[in-house]
Design a protein around this nucleic acid. Structure first.
Lengths: 256, 256
DNA sequence: CGCGATTTGTGCACGTCTTCACAAGCGCCT
DNA sequence: AGGCGCTTGTGAAGACGTGCACAAATCGCG
């Protein structure tokens, strides 16, 4: 099914062409493909096979082909995918054709680092404003931006079209900040505070918790240790664990 | 199935009792339960129902019960779970009964923030050493730790039992660092560099890419915008999107 | 001592994601 | 023009994860 997507194929038409609703798992992998494609483009490649791109993105080729097929992408059989075209398609689907404005709330340890992280700028985002509730931090300049008090959020949001809010406050403050963001119309939030946010329907929240990532790794360490401690069968070489047990595919199991 | 786990129920015996191999999705949620449980304990609760804990952790209660049943946990029907006992069990399964030593490589913008993040210490980890390849950064003190040159990794690893390596270098350096970590026996790596690491079997890698998180949110923004732009049916209130479309369960869909 | 209210643990059905395997399509070489 | 090798796109099967709904178990109260 689904032969013809994106009516006039190459130059995407001005109006929004009703996004095919992609499986969430696919959406989570598209950014990785995009990054790999940029690398390939920089290295001078004009086309790439599903095998090649899959290798660069750390997935298997069947998965990659199915993912790309979902967005109606046109590869050429016998040849592969056109790198530049595919970059355009993925950037379009991800909504990266416009440079989205990000508001960052909480300029502590982590917030500072995020404000200075140039990976955002290079991958389609612009940090439009910094906020904090701590009066002693207000006025500070970070990376060319001045830290504003959180109460100024409504005024600033009226000027800049804030697309995404990033919360990097301590946990106790996060829920209130989320509500303030929602109140000014933000419908996508990236939460670094270790707590659950409750938001109205229609608002997307993604959470990144650094300690949780370590704890998941800790589990696997613990399991590996217990396996070698009670050796079920022969082998002692710790690189040659039973097989199915060792790292099924942790690498991309994260995004999902 | 699975009545009796952990032979002598409460005080876990000295030896390792052969971890039940949990579904990966469950493992990813346990840390969240743990955090919620600590909050409950601090608030003075001695027991909690699956409904209550599920609410605090942002999942539904059936999922929570199934997750806990996997680790053979004993709740009491009609009452709920003993908070303190459950904390012990989860911490044991996650391997948090020992305070794991973490080596952090790359003391740039992000690395600095990570080194100063006290969430690690409070949740079972100890940053044991900081490394960087840049000679101008070596010797700097961060949070009571001195930054060492990456070449000292083998010597330091011999002293401290490094359990987990964290890579916060620029992408081009990450693969080499990963290999150095593996060479000194590290089998769990948390990678913040935007690139795919290739490591031997038996080594677990988890990746956190901040730009990818934003790009996933961007997709949802883009989709929401395209939906309201071509209004299929009646409603205009942007909080009342069709329902199935709005945020199925992004909140916990992350860990997986 | 028995009963009802409550809450866990789980069998089952459903949906989603992954993987295999192969037909269809494309370019190139003869 | 024809055939051959390569690569995509996809049907189908299997693995995995989720959520419902209910039986089994426990507590407290009369």
């Amino acid at each position: 099914m689904s032969q013809h997507r994106h009516p006039g194929a190459p130059g995407r038409a001005g109006a929004v062409p009703a996004l095919p609703d992609l499986p969430e798992a696919t959406v989570a992998r598209l950014p990785e493909y995009l990054r790999a494609l940029h690398n390939l483009a920089d290295a001078g490649h004009e086309t790439v096979s599903s095998e090649g791109l899959a290798g660069a993105a750390g997935v298997n080729s069947a998965k990659l082909r199915k993912d790309l097929s979902h967005l109606g992408s046109y590869g050429t059989r016998g040849v592969g995918y056109d790198v530049a075209l595919l970059i355009d398609q993925i950037e379009f689907v991800l909504g990266l054709t416009q440079r989205r404005a990000v508001a960052l709330v909480g300029v502590g340890n982590l917030g500072h680092a995020l404000a200075g992280y140039d990976g955002f700028a290079s991958r389609g985002f612009r940090i439009a404003a910094l906020f904090d509730a701590d009066a002693s931090r207000v006025g500070e300049m970070i990376n060319g931006l001045v830290v504003r008090h959180i109460d100024e959020l409504p005024r600033v949001a009226a000027e800049e079209a804030i697309s995404i809010g990033v919360i990097a406050t301590p946990a106790p403050a996060a829920q209130a900040v989320a509500e303030q963001l929602v109140a000014v119309g933000v419908t996508s939030i990236l939460n670094f505070a270790p707590c659950v946010l409750s938001v109205p329907d229609g608002v997307d929240v993604r959470k990144v918790d650094l300690a949780i990532e370590l704890q998941i790794l800790s589990f696997h360490e613990h399991r590996k240790a217990s396996l070698t401690a009670l050796p079920a069968a022969g082998g002692s070489a710790l690189t040659a664990l039973p097989g199915g047990l060792a790292t099924p595919d942790t690498q991309e199991a994260i995004g999902t």
